[in-house]
Simulated scan of single mutants.
Amino acid sequence: MPPKKKPRVRKASANSGKIVDAEETSAAGGKRKAAAPDAKTGKVSESAGSPVFARWLMKSEPESRFENGVDVKFGIEDLKALPNQTGCWDGVRNYQARNFMRQMKVGQQAFFYHSNCKEPGIAGVMTIVKEAYVDHTQFDKKDAHYDASSTPDNPKWSMVDVQFQRMMKRFVPLWELKEHHLQHRANGGPLKDVALFTRARLSVQPLTPEEFDFILSLEDKEPL
């Protein structure tokens, strides 16, 4: 499906309210050869350096906010409304978040996290249906994510395609996740080092199987 015909998905930092991620790491990242994740940790250390993960949390804004005259709103209901309930996850402008997307493989799951809104938290689950390819918004001068230093011959930024899988049985808010994180940090537990609180500014974050499964289990439990 040609990028110019695809619905555009925009992301935002949970803290700043900006579309573009804060640059924490400027590590270069090309596509990596697929590696089998460890059954317990969900990652495998590659000889080149960074570990490879298999589960994700991806942030987007469900409430209207205009930038350059364009409403950047995109919640899980917007994803559901797209043809085949599928859209491209464009606009990521942080090297670490981009590199995480370049690790993604078809069939992997990700939480759709509502960010920069009245009640941030996890709204549903989606599936990676196309692996990383060139993000066309970096070349569009009218786009908020335009990058003059990026060229078609040497593009900096990538995106993936995601497909709606299902809503959570109940919305899992950020405050509840933070309570579990604090408890687990004090007493041990799967969320003690979860990136949502240790690398909070990233709009694309890795999760271990234990983290993913624990968060998923919360939909069947009463809030704290």
Rank of each mutant, 00 (worst) to 15 (best):
N154L: 07
P37W: 12
D147T: 04
I19R: 14
G75P: 09
V160C: 01
V92C: 01
V52G: 11
P209L: 10
F139Q: 12
D78I: 08
V129T: 15
R32V: 09
M167R: 08
D21Y: 02
Y146A: 01
G91P: 02
I128D: 01
H136R: 13
K80P: 00
V194G: 09
W89Q: 02
K130W: 05
S47R: 13
Q103Y: 05
E119H: 09
P209Y: 08
K156Y: 04
A123P: 04
F111Q: 09
N154I: 02
K192V: 04
D220Y: 12
D78P: 04
R185P: 03
A28D: 12
E24A: 11
R185K: 15
Q163W: 00
A81H: 14
E211D: 10
Q85K: 15
A54G: 11
V204Q: 05
E179D: 00
H114D: 07
F197K: 08
N99V: 05
D21I: 06
A22M: 15
A200M: 12
S150M: 05
D90Y: 10
L202C: 08
D38T: 04
G17V: 10
P190Y: 03
A28P: 03
Q165T: 10
P3M: 02
G124Y: 08
F111E: 03
V20M: 03
Q109C: 06
N94L: 03
A144I: 04
N154S: 14
T41K: 14
Q183F: 07
R55M: 03
D153P: 00
L79K: 12
E46Q: 14
C88E: 11
Q108I: 06
L218H: 07
T151H: 12
W175P: 00
Q85S: 14
R10G: 00
E61G: 03
R166T: 10
F111K: 14
E210L: 12
R166W: 01
G91I: 04
V160D: 01
A200T: 12
N116T: 15
P155H: 07
A27H: 14
G121F: 06
T25H: 13
P209I: 09
L57E: 08
V9T: 03
R102P: 00
I215D: 00
V172I: 15
S115G: 06
R8G: 02
K31H: 11
P152C: 08
R10N: 09
E46L: 15
V162K: 09
F66G: 06
K6H: 07
P51I: 10
Q138C: 10
H184M: 00
A132D: 10
A34F: 11
R166K: 11
A22D: 12
P173Y: 01
R102V: 02
P155S: 06
D213R: 14
A97E: 06
D90K: 08
P37S: 07
G30D: 13
E219P: 03
Y146G: 00
V44P: 09
S47C: 02
L202I: 05
D161P: 02
L177I: 09
F171D: 05
T25D: 13
S150L: 06
N94G: 14
K73W: 11
S50P: 10
P37H: 10
V44Y: 10
M168V: 01
F164G: 05
M159G: 00
K142T: 05
D143N: 15
R102L: 07
E210F: 03
P206A: 14
I19P: 11
L202Y: 13
H184D: 02
N68A: 10
H114A: 12
K221G: 03
A97I: 06
A200K: 13
E119V: 14
G69A: 06
S60L: 07
W89I: 01
T208Q: 08
